[in-house]
């Protein structure tokens, strides 16, 4: 429901009319029910893995292994979840994921909006080449930095610490790009007015610009949080003991490790990783989809 894509929805009556006239003009008087059916079937295919995951996490171990598979649980049980939260330390992993994601998100919100403001509204020495370098790094694959980053972090003594998990992701190029685009569209007069009133650059940024950036900050915040929550390779390398595992790391290592054959546990783990994110997404989908759409348009 981004501003662009919903415009036909907000003016739904004319759009519908237009479509009808178009259908007649094109000679496609064919009813659109088959489109609904195709899209609906596609949607079922897309959603099925999630439904199956949730339903099967409520089945006892034997039923998960049963062939042919069942769809609805024959016996409902929460034992997978109780075991996940008691025998395995999932509350700890959940906390770790949350702590890392919160700090990474805060860092990106602050640092990226600061640099985004400078890029968008101040004509300063070195702006263009700095912007080009920051943008160029968006293309560099994460594995290129993996080895030296690990060497660096281990020299700093930060292996298996929150700092080691957080610092490398505290300021990313995507946020700078997003904030620069958004702030660039704000009128210069606001800043000029602030300057005339004698406000310093930082005051202008904090008091005038930031409050206007709420939509962009919301988008950036959600996308960064999700990215951090789902991040895998770096936490896998840096978190060397269980007390610092994030959820994806714990889930991946358990699913290929000694609990490989405990299907119920793995599915319950997947539910714990996925379902909170899906709920957050369904609540905030407007911001997320808008962010993707706007960064796609340019």
């Amino acid at each position: 429901m981004s501003t662009r894509t919903t415009s036909p929805e907000s003016t739904s009556t004319p759009a519908v009319k237009q479509n009808k006239t178009r259908a007649i003009a094109i000679g496609e008087a064919r009813p659109q029910w088959w489109l609904y059916v195709t899209l609906g079937l596609g949607l079922i295919v897309v959603v099925t893995p999630f439904l199956w995951m949730v339903l099967s996490s409520l089945k006892p171990e034997a039923e998960i292994r049963q062939s042919p598979p069942t769809w609805w649980p024959q016996t409902l049980t929460l034992e997978n979840f109780t075991e996940l939260f008691t025998r395995l330390d999932f509350p700890q992993f959940f906390t770790n994921s949350a702590v890392v994601a919160v700090f990474v998100t805060l860092g990106n919100l602050v640092f990226c909006s600061m640099l985004g403001y400078a890029f968008a509204k101040i004509d300063f020495w070195g702006r263009d080449w700095l912007f080009r370098i920051v943008l160029a790094t968006m293309m560099i694959p994460g594995v290129v930095m993996l080895v030296p980053l690990f060497v660096l972090v281990s020299k700093m003594g930060l292996v298996n610490t929150y700092a080691g998990l957080i610092l490398p992701f505290l300021a990313g190029p995507f946020g700078v790009f997003l904030m620069r685009q958004f702030i660039g569209a704000l009128p210069d007069e606001l800043i000029d007015a602030g300057r005339i009133d004698g406000a310093g650059e930082f005051r202008i940024f904090a008091r005038i610009i930031l409050p206007l950036c709420k939509p962009a900050l919301a988008t950036l915040g959600i996308l960064t949080f999700l990215g951090s929550w789902n991040n895998f390779l770096w936490p896998l390398v840096v978190a060397s003991s269980e007390d610092k595992y994030t959820l994806p790391v714990a889930l991946a290592l358990y699913s290929v490790g000694q609990n490989e054959n405990q299907y119920g546990l793995m599915l319950a783990g997947a539910v714990v990783v996925v379902v909170p994110v899906l709920i957050v997404f369904l609540i905030l989908q407007k911001h997320i989809i808008q962010g993707i759409a706007t960064s796609g348009i340019k």
Binding site: A252, M266, V274, Q285, I289
Partner: peptide, 26 residues
């Protein structure tokens, strides 16, 4: 022209994007 339901479908098709690849792979 699926004006009414387009938002609904878009959200549905987008759901897998926000989930962890690790969990989804499991």
């Amino acid at each position: 022209g699926i004006t009414r339901l387009s938002g609904f479908f878009r959200v549905g098709y987008f759901m897998p994007v926000v989930t962890s690849i690790v969990a989804v792979a499991v």
